[in-house]
Amino acid sequence: MTLATTAATGATTGQPQLVIDNVFKQFGEGPGSVIAIDNMSFDVKPGEFVSVIGPSGCGKSTLFNIIGGLLDEYAGNVLIERERIAGPHKAVGMVFQEESTFPWRNVIDNVAFPLELQGVNKSERLDRAHHFIDLVGLKGFEKLMPSALSGGMRQRVSIARTLVSGPQILLMDEPFAALDEQTRLLLGDKITQIQQDLNQTTLLITHNLTEAVQLSDRIVVMTYRPGRVKRIVNIDLPRPRTSDVVSSDAFGHYVAEIWSDLREEASRGMADTESVRRTAPRG
């Protein structure tokens, strides 16, 4: 039995909040088809921070879209509190890789947007929006338009907007991908703090090794195409955790351990990309 199946069958302690059970996704049919995800299984327990890491093109974003309910046609099951999800689920709050603030709304109106949809009265939604703006460290920026903010600040607005509706599971797809390393580390601190304050169940999809180790309780390492669970690594670093942890020996040990797995997959991915380039018609 592999580590992955151990996790999926719930052999670990605690009742999982999110279960990915033998999920399979293929794009297209016939000779040109691509298997993006091949029988992936793992789970996430309440309050746990799990990262899914893999090389580019391994199907991470496909998995994100399936769990978020944006991709309907797949085999297997995604269960939240034992209920199979069909379409976007109210328990899941999604943070996207691309910048996703609404440029026509200021910070507070962006954050309060989900509450507006729920019909929450104005004073309550503004109160709640203020709370989450404060939580992501944007107090004082409420009236600014996204165009006046940096990339990191905009991503924090997106995170606050997702958290304001109180999702049981926070699902993030490489939310710091477009940011510089320093901002990434500082935002990582912010996410860790929020996750600990709210005891927020979080699933992070990323290709960044240090980010995954800095933030996670467990890391699911994916193989390059088709995406399978290669290994699940428990990160036994002390909490509360900050970005200072990156200078510790234990951190370096985890990074080296996961990189040895990831390197093999990333090399396969690179070789695959190069062979496609070589065979592609020139001109």
């Binding site: 944006l70 379409g87 976007p88 899941v92 996207f96 996703s100 989900p114 949809l117």
Partner: peptide, 20 residues
């Protein structure tokens, strides 16, 4: 991505058109 934000918030077609 803006449409996906709307979908993730389970917006109706009319809400999606009017608000996004």
């Amino acid at each position: 991505v803006l449409i996906n934000v709307g979908r993730s918030l389970k917006m109706t077609d009319a809400q999606m058109f009017r608000m996004i």
